[in-house]
Amino acid sequence: MLTGLLGGISIHMMRRLNASAVRRNNDALERGDMNVLVRIHVMSILRDGARAALVTAVGLALAAGAGELLVGGLAVRGAMVVAVVVIGASLAAGAAGTLRLIGRGPDLRWFAAGLLGGVAGAWLK
């Protein structure tokens, strides 16, 4: 989740850098200079690749650090509590997001039908 937060912030920063590159080369772009256009595009893609690599590295480091901290530091039931509340939060986000998408229109009936079907499927399994 912290990695996701960092990802969002870094995308915003990267887009501002892209905008600076566009502003600096505005005259050349208005002249239809294809080399400048392609250079800006390719540099932006490379910048995004570097950003993604950095966010991934930080995410992996955080995961490794959290593993070290939690494995020795928490009892089994404590670790279970953390796991189930995070799973519950993710299920809540999925459900709330879907309800926001569907709204209060006719698709709500289809959602309810799907819920009933899912409950029946889970019961039978």
């Binding site: 299920l91 879907t98 569907i102 709500l108 039908a113 799907g114 819920l115 079907g117 889970a122």
Partner: peptide
């Protein structure tokens, strides 16, 4: 696609909850 999405996510929620729990 909109009602199909509603059915699919509606079904997935309880199934995934049971699976993860």
């Amino acid at each position: 696609v909109a009602p199909a999405m509603a059915v699919a996510i509606g079904a997935a929620l309880p199934l995934t909850t049971v699976y993860l729990g």
